[in-house]
């Protein structure tokens, strides 16, 4: 049976060993092919949400279905296989500094054992897609931040993941470059990949008119189609004000 939902979280709780409850009974459903922003104040649990989806941490309780498959109790060996279906990018790009653009992207293909012959054409195709067709031999440090993030995106996409997770992908970029990266993410989404983006960038969120999930202290505070950052932020601020007022 073909699943409509790519992410289905039920009552997911994550408590760190320190005792911090980063996610408290989170229920989220994301359809295949959706583009979703996840926003919220610092410490609200956004990165934890991404980590749970990447299976970097297992929830303490609750259930997570990805494409209809329960990933809550994956064994160590199954985690690797699961991650191959998911692409991820981060604020700090996480490129291999001693390898050039081509090698960084090809690396992802080597990891999953793609035959040597096919790697070349796959990597070139994806580098052209992210607009770096002419930078194959360049080292990461010789690239701008935006270009580095494009390499990271190329690496995340080259294995054709069903879902792309981005944790503050524009956190280190200037507004113009940020917008370019977001547009690239949107283009990728339009080709069918589900995209989940954690961001602090309210302008972009407001401009792109996508679904916005707002986390607050580990709970889903708001979940709006065609949402905006300003709205959720202002509500947060209001509650902050009222909180302050009560003091």
């Amino acid at each position: 049976m073909e699943e409509k939902e790519i992410v289905s979280m039920d009552n997911v709780i994550v408590t760190y060993p320190t005792g911090t409850q980063a996610l408290k009974k989170v229920n989220i459903r994301i359809a295949k092919g959706e583009f979703v922003f996840v926003v919220g104040a610092s410490g609200s649990g956004k990165s934890t949400f991404i980590k749970v989806l990447l299976r970097e941490i297992a929830p303490n309780s609750g259930r997570i279905l990805i494409n209809g498959k329960d990933i809550t109790n994956l064994k160590h060996k199954q985690v690797a296989a699961y991650r191959r279906k998911i692409g991820c990018v981060f604020q700090d790009f996480r490129l291999l500094k001693d390898r050039n653009v081509y090698e960084n992207v090809a690396f992802a293909q080597k990891v999953i054992g793609v035959p040597h012959k096919l790697i070349g054409q796959n990597v070139r195709r994806i580098l052209t897609l992210v607009g770096l067709g002419d930078k194959e031999q360049v080292l990461p440090k010789q690239l701008s931040g935006g270009e580095q993030q494009r390499v990271a995106l190329a690496r995340a996409l080259v294995n054709k993941p069903a879902m792309l997770l981005a944790d503050e992908p524009t956190g280190n970029l200037d507004p113009k470059t940020s917008m370019e990266i977001m547009q690239l993410l949107e283009a990728i989404n339009q080709q069918g990949t589900t995209v989940i983006v954690v961001t602090h960038d309210n302008e972009i969120v407001n401009q792109m008119r996508k679904r916005v999930i707002t986390l607050k202290e580990g709970e889903v505070y708001q979940d709006e189609e065609d949402g905006s950052y300003a709205k959720s932020l202002s509500i947060q601020n209001e509650s902050l004000f009222s909180g302050l007022a009560r003091l």
Binding site: K77, A80, R83, R84, L96, F107, V111, I112
Partner: peptide, 8 residues
């Protein structure tokens, strides 16, 4: 990074 990409 390898682990995140799904290396065995």
């Amino acid at each position: 990074i390898m682990r995140l990409i799904g290396a065995t």
